[in-house]
């Protein structure tokens, strides 16, 4: 199992690998979207088609879960979430940089495998931060929309259900984060094991698993976005 270089600043510990990974993923998304949206025309050609395909795909999610007006409002949020997580999942499949031995500058001693570059989503802190932020926003949106209804929904259909509602609200961000982290983490561990094995035995399984990792990365990015929109829509849905 690899360890990561860490930096201590003002009593807080920062994980360098995760910071590099998230920065590169964010930059890649910005560059990708910037170049795909240059010279927009009414009749889309080439790269504009790709961007419109992505937007239509995400619009399918938001229109499925939300009312029309709110779907337009949350479309850009859903696109950002999807693209960031998709790129972050793909980073570790394409490039993984490990080094061997101690790195005294970052407090790593002993003979250990040091990971310098991997998917940022294979670190649980990143996914918990994403899921917790989305959960906080969902509650905030629910309170802003209807404060009385927000408090009342904890006691529906009758007050003994209150503990179950609390557990439900805590379980949502926990499973939301753990689902993404566990998929990417298990994938990367298996890739590392297969790479370090005997090449004539593990080459074929490695190729199969790399293909499966790309599939899992896409599916999990999609599911993370769907669940984020579902959790928000549960809070802001108006009762008919």
């Amino acid at each position: 199992m690899e360890i990561t270089p860490k930096l201590t600043f003002l009593g807080m510990t920062f994980d360098l690998t995760v910071m590099i990974g998230t920065t590169i993923a964010a930059l890649l998304v910005i560059i990708l979207v910037f170049f795909l949206t240059r010279k927009l025309t009414m009749r889309p050609t080439g790269k504009q088609n790709i961007m419109e395909m992505i937007v239509d795909f995400i619009r399918g999610i938001t229109n499925m879960m939300l009312e029309d007006k709110q779907a337009a409002k949350y479309l850009s949020f859903a696109i950002t979430t999807f693209l960031f997580i998709l790129v972050a999942n793909m980073l570790g499949v394409i490039v993984m940089i490990n080094s061997h031995g101690a790195v005294p500058a970052f407090g790593l001693t002993g003979d250990a495998e040091v990971s310098w570059f991997k998917s940022p989503t294979s670190d649980i802190n990143v996914t918990v931060a994403l899921a917790f932020a989305i959960s906080l926003y969902a509650h905030f949106a629910g309170i802003r929309k209807n404060p009385r209804g927000y408090v009342a929904h904890y006691f529906k259909p009758y007050w003994p259900m209150f503990p179950l509602h609390i557990i439900d609200e805590l379980a949502k961000p926990t499973t939301h984060a753990a689902r993404l982290w566990a998929n990417i983490f298990a994938g990367e561990v298996l890739i590392t094991i297969l790479v370090s094995g005997a090449p004539y035995l593990t080459a074929l399984p490695l190729f199969a698993w790399l293909g499966f990792s790309i599939f899992v990365g896409c599916i999990q990015a999609y599911i993370f976005t769907v669940l984020a929109i579902v959790y928000i829509s549960q809070q802001i849905a108006s009762d008919h």
Binding site: T175, A178, R179, W181, A182, N183, F185, A186, I219, Q220, Y222, I223, V226
Partner: peptide, 17 residues
């Protein structure tokens, strides 16, 4: 495929731990 992603989550969390 969406359902597979949802179903796979719990076993894969167990595998990660």
């Amino acid at each position: 495929m969406i359902a597979v992603g949802l179903v796979e989550a719990l076993p894969i969390i167990a595998i990660a731990f």
